[in-house]
Amino acid sequence: MINLIINGLPVSVEEGATLLEAARFLGFPIPTLCYIDGLSPYGACRLCVVEIGEGPKAKLVTACTYPAEEGLKVRTASSRVIKARKMILELLLASCPQSKTIQDLAAAHGVRRQRFRQEYEDCILCGLCVRMCEEQMMAKAIGFRGRGQNRSVGTPFDIQSDICRLCGGCMYICPACQLRCTYTEPEKAVCGGCENLSPPCLEKEQFDDMMCYMDPCVACEITKD
């Protein structure tokens, strides 16, 4: 067993467990996009970043690929982690705003704007389909090609692979293929959809003596813990 401290709580996990597994075992939520149980961790989306170490040596690592170490101090929701996660989501929104998975994650993390040049990529190179094809379907029909900005997923020579059984596993697992609902204007980077519920009278907190005639107030009920 390996003893480590997650968010101040001492915990022991089995040898070989990753930080993500350890944190989830304790009940600390860590968002993931390219991690799915049953597929090998890949560390592509960086959403699962956590902060390890202390002081100036503290650094961000991906929880899904980092093995639990004896005596490691992990913070899963420090301000640095939250900031990095929001930035990652913003960048994901910039490349693939049509994905429901990404929109839901962005809404859940309170990302309300997208400050980068808007693109509409079909693929975020998370590698889920490649791993699905290799590890669950035992096919290895698709893989990564090229590098840098020319990196893409597909079959060799871009022709129908004779290994592919058309199982559809790659499409099933793809987060970019799951289109968001077109509830609001589809052009907008952040859909601002159903999960982005924020209280209408946010300013109330700035004024202690503010009078409110709403009783019961929906906004107050939501913000109440």
């Binding site: 290895k140 029909a141 698709i142 893989g143 990564f144 090609r145 079959t155 060799p156 020579f157 692979s161 290994i163």
Partner: peptide, 8 residues
């Protein structure tokens, strides 16, 4: 090796 890896 699989063709995918070699092509990669």
């Amino acid at each position: 090796f699989s063709l995918v890896d070699i092509y990669g």
